[in-house]
């Protein structure tokens, strides 16, 4: 998905000379083509996430459409106050594109796990929060929002769900609708792949929300008379669903604990019951 970020930026930069990239010393080599084609429009500022965000606010004030890119925990958890005050409170538009969220850097351990980003960003007034699950979805969502004048958070993932869905900003998608179903499973991001597999022969509905804020309340309300199960390898979607849906949702995701294991994304998902088998067992128990 990071390659798609580069390709999308390359495409948009040709049409918009106010698009500018501020990087925290990652992905620079990957973006060599961008730097060659648009000299001076990718600024590798350094490993200083707080200043990256503050600078982006200033560049927005100066008329640019800044895009900040670095690793998820460092720019969301460390720089939360900069995002809150410099972007949201001061209402300066900026798109934050992160990698390394949830357990994409599983092997690096708990310092590099980031499952709070979506929840934290969602709580900030005016912030838009997105979790695309494929390259195509990233392209659609980024293109729709990067210059709308709002602070926007988009996390890009190492994984993809592999489905071709009609995604647009602010809208959820019905992945599966079973007539008479009493359970609706809701998810976001690449873990839809496991949810889709798990629910393939279960009599449930499956909804998918690549935009977590603003959540598609109209779609949620259509399924509000069913039992809701949110399956997500992060926090944020569960809270968004519960804030909008009259019936209390259940959550199948992360425990209140650090993940002190290494390995791969697949290993960690299996450990947490977020593989297809674990999800199937949890959803099946609600039937």
């Amino acid at each position: 998905m990071r390659q798609q970020f580069r390709d999308t930026a390359l495409r948009l930069a040709g049409m918009d000379d106010k698009l500018i990239l501020l990087f925290g010393d990652i992905s620079v080599y990957l973006f060599n083509d961008f730097s060659r084609q648009y000299p001076g429009r990718l600024l590798n500022i350094g490993i200083c996430e707080n200043t990256l965000i503050s600078m982006a606010a200033g560049m927005s004030a100066a008329g640019f459409h800044p895009v900040v890119h670095t690793i998820a925990p460092f720019v969301t958890e460390r720089s939360y106050e900069q995002v809150k005050l410099d972007l949201c409170y001061n209402r300066f538009g900026c798109t934050i594109v992160t990698c390394g969220s949830s357990f994409d850097y599983a092997w690096d351990g708990a310092t590099h796990h980031c499952y709070t980003d979506l929840a934290l960003m969602r709580m900030l007034p005016g912030m838009e929060v997105m979790q695309p699950g494929s390259k195509r979805e990233f392209d659609i969502l980024f293109s729709a929002c990067y210059r709308n004048g709002n602070p926007t958070y988009i996390r890009i993932a190492a994984d993809e769900h592999g489905l071709d869905l009609p995604v647009e900003f602010g809208r959820g998608v019905v992945v599966k609708e079973t007539p008479g179903a009493t359970v609706t499973v809701i998810t976001a991001g690449p873990i839809l792949k496991n949810v889709h597999t798990a629910c393939s022969d279960l009599p449930v509905n499956v909804l998918y929300f690549p935009t977590i804020k603003p959540i598609d309340r109209d779609l949620l309300m259509r399924f509000a008379d069913t039992k809701i199960l949110v399956v997500h390898d992060a926090f944020g979607l569960f809270e968004a669903v519960n804030a909008s849906c009259p019936a209390a949702a259940e959550y199948h995701g992360l425990p209140d604990d650090f993940c002190c294991h290494y390995g791969t994304l697949t290993d960690i998902r299996g450990l947490l019951g977020l593989d297809a088998a674990g999800i199937r067992q949890r959803a099946g128990a609600m039937l």
Partner: peptide
């Protein structure tokens, strides 16, 4: 905070 935003404005 202000100095970082000022920096971004100056760069812009």
């Amino acid at each position: 905070h202000g100095i970082g935003v000022a920096l971004g404005m100056a760069l812009g």
